[in-house]
Design a protein around this nucleic acid. Structure first.
Length: 426
RNA sequence: GCCCCGUUCGUCUAGCGGCCCAGGACGCUGGCCUCUCACGCCGGAAGCACGGGUUCGAAUCCCGUACGGGGUACCA
């Protein structure tokens, strides 16, 4: 979350007035709440085993799963009898009669008949509090006003609303929160993206060279739109325009291609210097640059970055684009497929002529190199520019895809450029 | 099984009864630009799940059906 530029005002690591924020430190609080709930008969002890509940449901033919309220009104004698059997009770919440309705922030009015939501357990027989208790209690005591969460929790809402009402009644909570249930984000195909899926790992995208603002922008687009005809925006613009009521209730599929497109739009919003800064860690990791970067390389990088900044969509692509400039001649290699394709006999002939022309060249500048090669290859040999410069490009940069050729050769320098042309002929 | 939620181009969406024989974006595709790639520009194909209502008029409201998803624990 921090990587995306998302932070929190209150909670673990940052503190706040409603602590402690770790559930492990809140045991006493839950025990106390449980006691007060019991005192006011919002809850009751239940001694049933799951087998007994199942058996009873089978016998009654009820279609409703879950607990049947058997222990709601146990007499003291019955309780004593269970106790002598050595049974420890769980505590259940007494669901009210009728129905629970709330106005969901993203889905509108939703109603559940309480006959379909059984009395639920708040703690284990050993006294450990359950999520069903802990979640509303924490929200109530921290004065949460809006609960926005995944739609998987939609059906737990009719349990939480009456519990919240009870907590308010007891003075433990102050406000009934508003609820909004957000759609899922699905992966490829139609499967739900779980936290365990590699696809759902933020760092995977970060390591692929995504910009945090790019990914954030894309993610915001899943289920929401800033305007009918726009989809690139900053976090500030999003904060300004966002309203939970505009969120779509239906699930969205994660589309890597679109995520990349949005990301590259953000890439183009950055200055050359900013892209350089962001790409630096990737270049160092890949071994293109040393850490710290030498003064000579820093200077070279400054000259080279304007050539590549506009043609990369992700930070990692800078590695392939710039590698050839910084590598020493002994370690320089070429992409085999590209060599096979472009440095065939025809290609080598082109490189040969280029070498001749460039060896004679006086001024080593992009303009002069271009003029010389244009004259030698295009006019001299009568071949098309794209066929003429392809082999030279592979010879010098090692790849079919590179920054502009002539500028690249200028930056590489005369000696290294000529050396690479020669080695391509061996 | 029962309860709840959802369904507009392949994908993400705009649309809240007439402005829609449905708009944008990504992707796909034809072309332009061009030393490769990328950018940029111009064009194209592609969608209201289905069936009934309501209405002068429905993608928009209502009801069914189908399909998808979630829940149904002494999990969270």
């Amino acid at each position: 979350m921090r990587w995306l530029g998302l932070d929190w005002d209150e909670g673990p690591e940052v503190g706040g007035p409603h602590g402690p924020y770790l559930q492990s430190e809140r045991g006493d609080i839950y025990r106390d709440v449980l006691a007060r709930l019991a005192e006011s008969s919002y809850t009751y002890e239940c001694y049933c085993t799951t087998e007994e509940v199942d058996a009873r449901r089978k016998a009654s033919g009820s279609k409703v799963m879950g607990y049947d309220g058997f222990c709601r009104d146990l007499t003291e004698e019955q309780v004593a009898a269970f106790r002598t059997l050595g049974r420890q009770p769980v505590v259940r919440f007494r669901m009210p009669e009728g129905s629970i309705t709330w106005n969901d922030l993203v889905r509108g009015e939703i109603t559940f008949e309480t006959q379909y939501v059984p009395d639920f357990a708040l703690c284990r027989a050993n006294g450990d509090p359950l999520y069903t208790l802990v979640n509303p209690v924490d929200d109530a005591m921290m004065e949460i006003t809006h609960v926005l969460r995944g739609e998987d929790l939609l059906s737990s809402t009719p349990r939480q609303i009456p519990l919240h009402a009870a907590l308010i009644e007891l003075g433990i909570g102050k406000v009934m929160p508003e609820f909004g249930h957000l759609p899922f984000v699905m992966g490829e195909g139609n499967k739900k993206l779980s936290k365990r899926d590699p696809e759902s790992h933020l760092f995977l995208y970060r390591d692929q060279g995504f910009l945090p603002e790019g990914l954030l922008n894309y993610l915001a687009l899943l289920g929401w739109a800033i305007a009918a005809d726009r989809d690139v925006f900053s976090m500030e613009e999003m904060v300004e325009a966002f309203d939970i009521k505009d969120v779509n209730p239906n699930p969205a599929r994660f589309d890597l291609k679109k995520a990349e497109a949005i990301n590259s739009a953000h890439m183009r919003l950055l200055s050359i210097d900013q892209i350089t800064d962001r790409a630096l860690p990737f270049l160092k990791d890949a071994g293109v640059l040393t850490d710290p970067v030498s003064p000579a390389d820093t200077q070279l990088l400054e000259l080279a970055m304007p050539l590549v900044a506009e043609r990369i969509n992700k930070l990692t692509e800078s590695v392939d684009m710039l590698g050839f400039l910084f590598i020493d001649e002994e370690s320089f290699t070429r992409d085999e497929a590209d060599v096979e394709k472009l440095l065939n006999d025809d290609g080598r002939a082109v490189v040969r002529r280029s070498l001749d022309a460039l060896e004679r060249l006086g001024e080593w500048s992009a303009g002069a190199i271009q003029a010389a090669l244009q004259a030698e290859l295009v006019e001299g040999m009568g071949i098309k520019p794209r066929n003429a410069f392809g082999p030279v490009r592979v010879a010098v940069t090692g790849r079919r895809v590179s920054p502009p050729l002539f500028e690249s050769m200028e930056l590489l320098g005369r000696e290294r450029s000529l050396a690479r042309l020669r080695s391509a002929l061996v």
